[in-house]
Design a protein around this nucleic acid. Structure first.
Lengths: 138, 138
DNA sequence: GTGGCTGCAAAACCTTTGCACACAA
DNA sequence: TTGTGTGCAAAGGTTTTGCAGCCAC
């Protein structure tokens, strides 16, 4: 299955690529290159550069979605057309995935209004989670 | 007026700060530190570090909104409670400001659902502008 | 065999920071 | 005067890149 994804985009099947795809397929939330690398490297030998290169290539091919978050790190997720956004606590970094994306209508509106071909969007909410709110009272 | 903004937040009134606020008040779109610096420096002597420090301070005080864009640069805008998002062409970087923000309802929903206190959000659309679409046909 | 893939180290990029000096209050 | 603000240069973190060797096809 993962092999097919690669073949369909003229990419060679390598251990690194398969391992990276496997990790992302298992994950329910977007992950950073570092996150992915540190998991994959326990199983397969690869360098951080390769992780970055692979993630970049897969994103270019549309297999992954790539998103630079407000924390300065880039998050990757499988592009299964059910992409997820995040709500991140600015104090403890607790992250809650958001399943609903309210932007489809907005995109249609922008296409009509600006003539752009819209290829994607980034959306992120920042806040303070209940636990941190509690801690602040002490 | 700009002096008052600074006094109200216990910040000293300096030429750099006034000049930076002036540039942002005139702008209808969010600007990067580099953008702001290059305009201000033609008028007032300041260093890029000062620009960054000032922008950071003003953001912390809630006077500015700070937003890390998908291009890896941080954009600043006056926080006048009518914040703007952007639609950016991934080819030529043409940027269109978006006046409507569709996320107020979404935030209320997330507060109810997650218990987070939501302090902000980032939203950005990426696409290809009409001119670049035209160029690709050639 | 050949071109794409990888590792390593170095560089790039934007942003932050340490320290000594300058200036607003 | 005093503590905040500033300039300069150096460092910080993440990501990208050059080059030589390696591996999938």
């Amino acid at each position: 299955m993962k092999e097919n994804i690669l073949k369909a985009t003229d990419l060679k099947t390598t251990k690194s690529r398969l391992a990276i795809l496997k990790v992302l397929e298992k994950s329910s939330v977007p992950m950073t290159a570092e996150d992915i690398y540190s998991i994959v490297v326990t199983d397969v030998h690869l360098s951080l550069s390769t992780a970055y290169r692979t993630l970049g290539t897969l994103s270019d091919k549309g297999i992954l979605l790539k998103n630079l978050s407000q924390d300065g790190k880039t998050y990757y997720q499988i592009n299964n057309h059910q992409h997820k956004h995040q709500l991140v606590c600015t104090l403890c970094s607790k992250t809650v995935p958001i399943d609903e994306c309210p932007l489809t209508n907005m995109e249609e509106y922008l296409i009509r209004k600006t003539g752009f071909a819209i290829t994607g969007h980034s959306l992120e909410f920042l806040g303070i989670c209940p636990k941190c709110t509690e801690n602040m009272k002490e």
